[in-house]
Amino acid sequence: MLPAPLRKPSNPVHVRVRAWRGRVGLAMVASLSVLAGMTDAIGFLATGDFVSFMSGNTTRLAVAVGEGDLRLVVRLLFAVLAFIVGNALGVLLARWGGRRALPLMLVIAGLLCTAALLPLATQVPALLAAIVAMGMLNAAVEQVNGLPVGLTYVTGALSRFGRGLGRWILGERRSGWRVQLVPWTGMLLGAVLGALLEAQFGLKAMLFSAGLAAVLGLATLRIPRRWQRDYMPR
Rank of each mutant, 00 (worst) to 15 (best):
F161D: 06
V65G: 01
G171A: 07
L111W: 03
L61C: 02
V65E: 04
G68Y: 08
R174Q: 14
R229K: 13
L2N: 05
G150Y: 13
T220E: 01
Q200D: 12
Q143S: 12
A82N: 06
R160A: 11
A27K: 05
G202C: 11
G110W: 04
L61F: 15
Q228M: 12
P5S: 07
R167S: 15
W227T: 13
A140G: 05
L45H: 07
S175D: 14
G190L: 05
L92I: 10
M38Q: 08
C113V: 14
V24S: 10
D49I: 12
D40H: 04
G217S: 00
P12Y: 09
A82K: 02
N138M: 06
S159V: 14
G48R: 08
S159M: 13
R173Q: 14
M232P: 02
P183D: 06
S55D: 07
V34F: 09
G186S: 04
V13T: 10
P224E: 04
L188D: 03
P148M: 09
G90M: 03
L45I: 14
V144Q: 01
L77K: 03
Q228V: 03
G171W: 05
R222K: 14
G22T: 07
V34G: 01
S33N: 02
A79H: 03
L188K: 00
V144C: 06
P9V: 04
L70K: 08
L72M: 13
L45R: 13
V63Y: 07
W227D: 13
L2C: 01
T59F: 10
P3K: 13
R71L: 12
V149M: 14
V80Q: 08
F208P: 01
Q180C: 09
L26Y: 15
A88I: 13
W96N: 10
L127P: 01
C113T: 14
M134N: 13
A210F: 02
K204Y: 13
R226W: 12
A214G: 04
M136R: 01
L26Q: 11
L203A: 14
I131S: 02
T59G: 06
V149W: 06
A219K: 00
F78K: 08
L2Y: 08
V141R: 03
F44M: 12
F78D: 09
F208Y: 14
E172K: 09
R99Q: 11
T220H: 06
V13R: 12
N57P: 05
